[in-house]
């Protein structure tokens, strides 16, 4: 058991956990955090897999990882801008296909709001998921809770 193997295993496990988070988390910003963990795990895996101590560290993967870190922060910055835009347009930080299993009033600060019409696709999807509070009531409803 060497440090390289330990960090390789840690990278694989963090990557798996982040895959779970990216799929199962409902707020888009939480998915974005998970995606960042996925990226960091890939970088760790790359450097750990290329390290052959006691030989000197290989500079090429290091340079690739620095490039990757900068590209990741650029993508994250754009994703944050898109999320803010989505919250501004829809009043919600959750994608329509991730609608809450049991009523989403508390997830829309101040009562929430959506630009789409009541009969639009998001509501149809909600109805298909089962009798949700959001699917039954005319929308937007009064602030609840």
């Amino acid at each position: 058991m060497s440090s390289v193997e330990i960090y390789g295993a840690a990278a694989a496990l963090s990557f798996g956990l982040a895959v779970y988070g990216a799929i199962a988390a409902r707020p888009v910003i939480h998915k974005l955090v998970s995606l960042n963990v996925m990226g960091a795990s890939v970088f760790l895996l790359l450097v750990a897999a290329s390290a052959r101590p006691p030989a000197a560290p290989d500079p090429v993967p290091h340079a690739m990882v620095i490039t990757g870190i900068v590209v990741t922060v650029a993508a994250t910055g754009y994703a944050v801008a898109l999320i803010r835009r989505m919250e501004w347009e829809r009043g919600s930080g959750v994608l329509p296909e991730d609608a809450a299993p049991g009523g989403a009033a508390s997830e829309q600060p101040g009562g929430g709001g959506r630009e789409r019409g009541e009969g639009g696709a998001p509501e149809a999807e909600n109805a298909a998921e089962g009798p949700t509070e959001e699917g039954r009531s005319p929308w937007p409803g009064p602030p609840r809770g």
């Binding site: 910003i29 960042n36 919250e87 009043g91 709001g113």
Partner: peptide, 19 residues
């Protein structure tokens, strides 16, 4: 920087709402 970006995404911001 990424931490600041992600925290900044959760700060108060205007919402264009139907109501």
């Amino acid at each position: 920087i990424t931490g600041a970006l992600l925290l900044g995404a959760q700060t108060a911001q205007p919402a264009r709402r139907r109501g």
